[in-house]
């Protein structure tokens, strides 16, 4: 092993942990939406993403490569939503 590896950490949350927050921001159920990582191209349901809530904001990361997919920071009445790490966010998800 010469490269950096990540986790697994005990107690890491998944996208379901921000289901309520996403519903509030997007106005619909987003955990079944399909997200594609802009870094590695991995596509999965939002529910499968890794989520970190104990940081100053909510951070959603790719389960495959750990790159940041989205960051949501709330301050008072304003939510800052950065989806820069997502190449695509499809809702409803493409039928398989």
């Amino acid at each position: 092993m010469t490269q950096t590896s990540y986790g697994p950490d005990d107690g890491t949350l998944d996208g379901n942990a921000i289901g309520g927050l996403l519903r509030e921001l997007f106005g619909t159920e987003m955990t079944t939406a399909s997200g594609t990582c802009a870094t590695c191209g991995y596509t999965a349901q939002v529910a499968q993403a890794l989520v970190y809530l104990d940081a100053p904001g909510a951070v959603m990361r790719c389960r495959a490569c750990a790159a940041v997919l989205a960051v949501i920071v709330r301050r008072q009445a304003t939510a800052c939503v950065d989806l820069e790490g997502l190449a695509a966010l499809d809702y409803p998800p493409p039928s398989s």
């Binding site: 490269q3 590896s5 986790g7 890794l50 104990d54 940081a55 990361r61």
Partner: peptide, 16 residues
């Protein structure tokens, strides 16, 4: 000593 992280814990071998 609370642990607050925005991502998974990286583990890099000291030799690299």
């Amino acid at each position: 000593f609370p642990v607050l992280s925005a991502g998974p814990t990286p583990r890099t071998p000291l030799e690299s």
